[in-house]
Design a protein around this nucleic acid. Structure first.
Lengths: 359, 359
DNA sequence: TTGTAGGCGTTATCAC
DNA sequence: GTGATAACGCCTACAA
């Protein structure tokens, strides 16, 4: 029976099982006949005699008790939240990553707070600091190109906040990084192209200052060299990862004196742009021109012809980031945090837009 | 000077401006020479003598004080969070909506917590209840098709949680609804088609049980009737809002004895599918077949030919939902909550995929 | 293994 | 208009 001693009078009143408010740790403790601390231990899975634990769990069940996250956050000085910093909230990549994060925390009490930021904003660092100060999250995840800034990592370390930097190459120490092997993936793509008889391979760059763009181009050049192909700079065009820039780059490459037989674009949006440029010139795809992209985003399958592209396992990277950040909260029993990889493989998805070079 | 009396010894120690921990309301109160409650009043913009307010604000500024959200949440019994319930976390629509929400809360102290849910999950309602119990959010937003369930609205009312149901028609009372006029938008589209000389108009349905699908079909049928066109059921095909279902529907419609000259698909993904089906049959687009979609998602522009479609102002709906949910926190001065609309207009975007009927 | 006392940083109540 | 004191629901430190 719940009792309460009023300060003023000292009388003892029996509270009629208060209807409105949710049961608290105190209610559970009373019902189970233990102290609040013991209930707290059950909640936090600390060592406890089995019989006591069972007793408390029964009380929790009976009352439908759900620990108050806000109170725990206050006491822990940590919010049960993971913060996701994204550069461009319109990018399918950020969305897919978020899906991976959400799937990883679905059964935990962790929430996700997304925060779009412009990498070139004047107060970027202080914006991040304010947000982290407010949220006091369990951890933070930075997507490219934000993740490429070392000063952001230093900020988190200073604030004593765990973080993961996501990218197309290792950007920080293992425990703070999740990355994909874009360079090797692109090399594999080029090997395939060469095997199909292609010798003139066009390349559409990503924007300067994006590590992913650099890695993909590095892989491309390395592969050309491995295949003994010449490094013809007229086969390189600049892009900005946008559809429009892909159209422009496509036009440039296709109006060259001797145009390429296949074009690799550093992401799917630009590959879609190249596809449009080719259609506009009345080319027959993939007969007259093969096109390959990178990302395997939602457009890839919907293009005509469907896009052969590198599957960037960005959703897996999202789930993996969470598991590395808060292993104690999301790992299944038996899983070890140390076993978690840091790198995930990007793999080629063969669709219609790549065929052999016509001879 | 901050002082602290230790319980054990009773000695008074001067705390050297504790470096690690952030300043609290107590620090501000001391510096300003007022009580904690007065500082609290400043934070919450309650009535206060101007001179006191200035004094406190100066202290806040000097200390760089940021109110602890967790402590406020505990005291208020409300978290500074808006929960977004989404059905399909892969859908571009959900992502675009989220972008609108994030833009609306960007400068506030509110965070967004996204929660994907399967509408057909067995414990849907109790899942929602648990999540809301945990989060104690300022408000909740339900995207279609979750928003179409009345029992979810009732749950929120029982839990005393403000909510918004988003859809393609008014689903709840004004203050709890944000919707777009899909029906009228589709009617306008059909009028355009008729004006271009089209008489045989194909229609690809959305999935049964989606209100948006019903509204769009209703608008379509109404428009046919208004134009005095026959209701030829062979011009209707089923779809599931997916690309693949669009391909199937396109094949069905295009193999009819007298195929349509234009096909309206109830969303962009299916329109992309129809586009593929047309390409596969070797049709010349839009000469042989016009295609129109609905959503104006990222694919629309990247298709070949680019897709004429209805712009579904889903990002605006996201921002609007937030403004209706927590006007006191996000409205600019001068804006009135009562002035906020509940309905936003879907409008036709003319691109390449719709041309006049060849005669 | 379990319990007690005190604190986390804020707001509510109710005086003055 | 402003302040003292008690919540809010949980956790940490320490004691038993």
């Amino acid at each position: 029976m719940t009792e309460k001693r009023t300060e003023k009078t000292g009388t003892i009143v029996a509270l009629p099982r208060k209807t409105g408010s949710a049961p608290t740790i105190t209610d559970v403790a009373e019902l189970a006949g233990v102290s609040k601390k013991t209930v707290s231990r059950v909640i936090n899975r600390e060592a406890l005699k089995a019989s006591t634990r069972v007793k408390v769990e029964a009380a929790i069940e009976q009352l439908g008790f759900v620990p108050n996250v806000q109170a725990r956050a206050l006491a822990f000085r940590k919010n049960f939240v993971i913060v996701l910093f994204i550069h461009d909230s319109t990018s399918p990549m950020a969305m897919t990553f978020q899906r991976g994060v959400l799937s990883a925390i679905a059964d935990s009490e962790i929430a996700l707070a997304a925060r779009p930021l412009d990498r070139s904003a004047p107060h970027l660092l202080s914006d991040i600091e304010t947000f982290l100060t407010r949220q006091k999250p369990m951890g933070a995840i930075f997507l490219p190109p934000l993740s490429e800034r070392d000063d952001i990592g230093e900020l988190c370390q200073r604030m004593n906040i765990k973080y993961i930097r996501v990218g197309s190459a290792q950007l920080d120490m293992m425990s703070r990084s999740v990355w994909s092997n874009d360079r090797e993936a692109v090399m594999a793509v080029v090997r395939d192209m060469v095997a199909l008889g292609h010798r003139r391979i066009g390349f559409v760059r990503g924007p300067a200052g994006f590590r992913s763009a650099r890695e993909r181009e590095a892989g491309f050049r390395q592969a050309l060299q491995n295949a003994g192909l010449p490094m013809d700079e007229t086969l390189f065009a600049d892009g900005e990862y946008s559809f429009e820039s892909g159209v422009r780059a496509g036009k440039v490459l296709l109006t060259a004196p001797v145009p390429p037989t296949v074009i690799f674009a550093s992401n799917d949006s630009m590959a879609a742009g190249v596809t449009r440029a080719a259609h506009e010139r009345g080319l027959n795809l993939p007969g007259d021109l093969s096109i390959v992209g990178f990302d395997d985003g939602p457009v890839a399958m919907q293009l005509w012809p469907s896009l052969t592209t590198v599957h960037w396992p960005i959703a897996e990277m999202g789930a993996l980031s969470v598991r590395k950040l808060v292993p104690e909260m999301v790992l299944k029993s038996g899983e070890m945090a140390d076993d978690l990889p840091s790198m995930v493989e990007s793999t080629l998805i063969r669709r219609e837009s790549l065929s052999d070079a016509k001879t």
